[in-house]
Design a protein around this nucleic acid. Structure first.
Length: 483
DNA sequence: CTGGGGAGGGGGCCC
DNA sequence: GGGGCCCCCTCCCCA
């Protein structure tokens, strides 16, 4: 027979014990303020504490002390209250920091609630926006002072009831659900949140131009628009002041998205916001330069704490394994070096530029693959008939900075004007000489080559025959780096 | 509109 | 820790 009130009663008792400082065996120091709690409760609630306490579990006689400088005492109070009551006091003001702290503490339930909270705020604001648009459309012809009062009322209205207490429903279908089992649902909710945020951020931008601009700037197309977009990633979480200043982040968040920090309100037509927008856009453009990215990345790497986080495996009594947690997302890795590599997708750092076309890459191997396939025709496959070709059965065709191979048959069918040239895969160094990282393989090839470079001919086809010299007119300087 | 291939990007892991 | 390899995924282009 199951007594349904037992769990809540037990939690209430634990909460009372906490308030009366009874049996508290863990002190949590948050920016100088001490919170007392029970180890077993913290252990059961947080992946971070699970790891922390399991490592210090040998010394049970002494109270455990945990120190945090990455979030405020008020934020931790909200989280601790939730742990002991199941009630999460979220407001428009604290939701970001609570979400960030929950991410740090690996409390996925709170994360999900925060995301739902933000998403519902976005939905509300979407409705308000529609309402505002219809109002302003109606009043445009009649009311000389249309927009701001209506908007302000809207905001006041939203502010009038800023605090929402969210009780997390008991949604654990199978008993073993913890951080990992709810991870997928967390990710899916994050996708929803990202879409919402992307939708929100689009309001202040020129519609449809994002992709073109990104291409113009030579940035990657796909992932940065999703979870790894640097600016989005920054605003998504890290409250750790050792990484990036919180104030700057919030300013960026606020300016870029035109979102009220208090209530995620929508401010269409606000002139001040428009001005901030232009500044923010300028900053955004500046922040995309390789130099800025490298500086930012360097700052991040140097300030990176030894342990960014932990994640428990939590499988049938296994002790949690130490992992490095990304401060910007939920990704964890085994090795610090892998984390550093992963962080490039957040910082935007691209230390490996291609000298031939200027495109920059996060990894040397990607640059090499790019250079070999695009500029060296490294694949011994006829691009047209897909047959294997050798140096004897085919030749290299150049189209702009792109090279590929064609078998003699396909070459004859294509009827290209061929310019006899020597194809030497090692004739170019793909890495710029502007102080960027130079890989060993590129240096070796550079030593073999005669600093020969290729003219940028985007619309001309040049067929390069093997073992013949490159005409002098083709030997021109490499196109400078685009970024 | 759709499927296939190319290119780019990221993760895991080995050396 | 860096370099490198392998694998997988996503996006884009093109037929």
């Amino acid at each position: 027979m199951e007594i349904s009130s037992h769990q809540s009663h037990l939690l209430e008792q634990l909460n009372e014990q906490r308030k009366q400082d009874l049996f508290c065996d863990c002190n949590i120091l948050v920016e100088g303020k001490v919170f007392k709690a029970h180890r077993n409760v913290l252990f059961a609630s947080s992946g971070y504490f699970k790891m922390l306490l399991s490592q210090s579990s040998k010394e049970t006689s002494q109270p455990t002390i945990a120190t945090f400088e990455v979030f405020s005492p008020e934020t931790f109070m909200v989280i601790l209250d939730f742990v002991y009551s199941g009630i999460l006091s979220l407001t428009g003001q604290n939701v970001i920091e609570v979400m960030s702290a929950a991410s740090y503490l690996q409390m996925t339930d709170i994360l999900n609630v925060c995301k739902t909270f933000i998403k519902s705020s976005l939905d509300i604001n979407e409705k308000e926006k529609d309402h505002y648009l219809s109002l302003s459309a109606k009043s445009a012809s009649t009311d000389p002072t249309p927009a701001r009062p209506a908007l302000y009322r809207s905001r006041r209205k939203a502010k009038s009831n800023p605090r929402r207490s969210c009780s997390i429903p008991d949604e654990k279908p199978n008993g073993n659900e913890n951080s990992w089992s709810s991870y997928s649902s967390y990710l899916s909710s994050q996708v929803i949140l990202q879409r919402a945020e992307t939708q929100l951020s689009k309001r202040g931008r020129k519609q449809g131009s994002t992709r073109k601009r990104r291409k113009h700037l030579g940035l990657s197309q796909s992932r940065e628009l999703g979870g790894c977009k640097p600016d989005r990633a920054e605003r998504a979480g890290a409250s750790d002041p050792t990484h990036i200043s919180q104030g700057g982040e919030e300013a960026e968040f606020d300016a870029e998205n035109d979102v009220d920090q208090d209530d995620f309100g929508y401010h269409p037509g606000a002139e001040a916001a428009a001005k901030r927008w232009s500044v923010a856009q300028l900053e955004q453009e500046l922040s995309r330069t390789p130099e800025f990215m490298e500086l930012k990345a360097e700052e991040l790497y140097t300030s990176m704490p030894t342990i960014l986080g932990v994640m428990s495996s939590w499988n049938e009594g296994d002790l949690p394994r130490m992992r490095f947690k990304c401060p910007f997302c939920t990704h964890t890795v085994k090795r610090r070096a892998d984390l550093k590599r992963h962080l490039r997708c957040h910082t935007g750092e691209r230390p490996y530029p291609c000298e031939a076309c200027g495109k920059r890459f996060t990894r040397l191997e990607h640059l090499r693959n790019h250079f070999q396939t695009i500029h060296q025709a490294g694949k011994l496959i006829c691009r047209k008939c897909k047959r294997h070709v050798t140096e004897l059965t085919g030749c290299v065709v150049q189209q702009g900075t792109r090279r590929y191979r064609l078998c003699h048959k396909c070459l004859a069918e294509a009827n290209f004007d061929s310019i006899p040239e020597d194809f030497n895969p090692s004739e170019h160094s793909p890495v710029s000489s502007t102080g960027n990282k130079r890989p060993r393989w590129a240096l070796e090839e550079e030593q073999k080559s005669d600093e020969e470079t290729v003219e940028e001919e985007p619309y001309n086809l040049v067929v390069r025959h093997n073992n013949e010299d490159i005409p002098d007119e083709v030997k021109e300087k490499v196109k400078p780096n685009l970024r």
